[in-house]
Amino acid sequence: MKAVFPSLIVLLAAPAVQAADLSVTVNDAGGKPVSFAVVTWTPKAGAAIPAAVKSAQYVMTQKNVQFAPFVLAVPVGATVSFPNQDRVNHHVYSFSPAMPFQLPLYGKGQTRTVTFTKAGTDALGCNIHDSMSAYIHIVNTPYFATTGADGKIVLKGVPEGAGALKVWHPLMDAPDHEVAKALTAGKTNAPQTFAVKVRARLTPNGSY
């Protein structure tokens, strides 16, 4: 009779991990939707970031003497492109501890890249145009998304189990600009809502 290894028995007996989407809405204290909020779910045991997620296209454009988008979420290990679509030159930089860098003066039609290897936040600026600002939020989980104008996102394929659901926004009035709550994901997930306090941002056209 052939021996059956205990590890094989455990493997055969273990139930398959299920995954389900998770919907999240982020509103301000007055109930209005908050855009550019980065929502993440991190399993308690952590989660490897697939190569396809790391190698996806992440772009921070310079156009109309502004960065776009205002907030870009990327996973650890991602490379971000910084194309200049303006008629003027830009010198992009960040002095943030997560990933300090400088992209010396370059002009229209040119692109530079930076690979982000550490979780955290990079505040961006331009040495030539003080009014330009944006943020790159580097996350250590494959489950992340950034809210649009409706304040909503859907995290795809969140696996069953305990974890932390977090919302980050650069203008949020909270420690490290982030709020979090424990969440156990299941085969189906109830929609989640966050009410956060966020400062107004001056938009490129001069209005709030």
Rank of each mutant, 00 (worst) to 15 (best):
F116G: 08
F95N: 14
C126T: 04
F95L: 14
S131E: 13
S96L: 09
I128L: 15
S133Y: 01
G109A: 07
Y135L: 14
P104T: 04
Y106G: 08
S94L: 12
M132S: 09
S96D: 05
Y106W: 03
H91N: 14
G120L: 12
F95E: 09
I136C: 15
L124Y: 04
T113P: 02
A123C: 01
P104Q: 07
L105G: 11
Q102F: 02
Q110V: 03
I136K: 12
A134C: 13
T113W: 01
Y135D: 09
Y93S: 10
G107W: 00
A119C: 11
P104N: 06
C126A: 08
L103T: 00
F116L: 15
F101S: 03
Y106F: 15
N127I: 02
H129K: 12
Q102E: 14
M132H: 08
T113V: 12
L105M: 14
F116S: 09
P100N: 11
K108N: 07
L124I: 09
V92D: 10
P97W: 00
T121M: 11
T113N: 11
R112T: 00
F95V: 05
G125N: 08
D130K: 12
V92H: 13
S94T: 14
Q110D: 03
P100R: 09
N127T: 01
L105Q: 10
Y106P: 07
S133D: 02
K108Y: 00
Q102Y: 02
N127F: 09
L124E: 04
T113I: 07
G107T: 05
L124A: 11
Y135I: 12
S94E: 05
S94R: 06
T117R: 14
N89Y: 07
G109W: 00
G120R: 06
G109V: 04
K108F: 03
V114G: 01
T111E: 08
G125C: 07
H90K: 05
A134K: 07
K108H: 02
H129E: 09
G109D: 01
A119K: 12
D122P: 00
S131H: 11
H129L: 12
V114M: 11
Y93C: 08
P97E: 04
N127W: 02
Q110N: 08
I128F: 06
V114R: 03
F95K: 15
Y106H: 05
T115L: 11
T115N: 06
T117S: 14
P97L: 08
P97V: 00
H90Q: 03
Q102D: 14
M99Q: 13
N89P: 06
S94H: 03
S96T: 01
D122H: 01
L105C: 10
N89E: 13
M132I: 11
D122F: 00
L124K: 07
D130V: 10
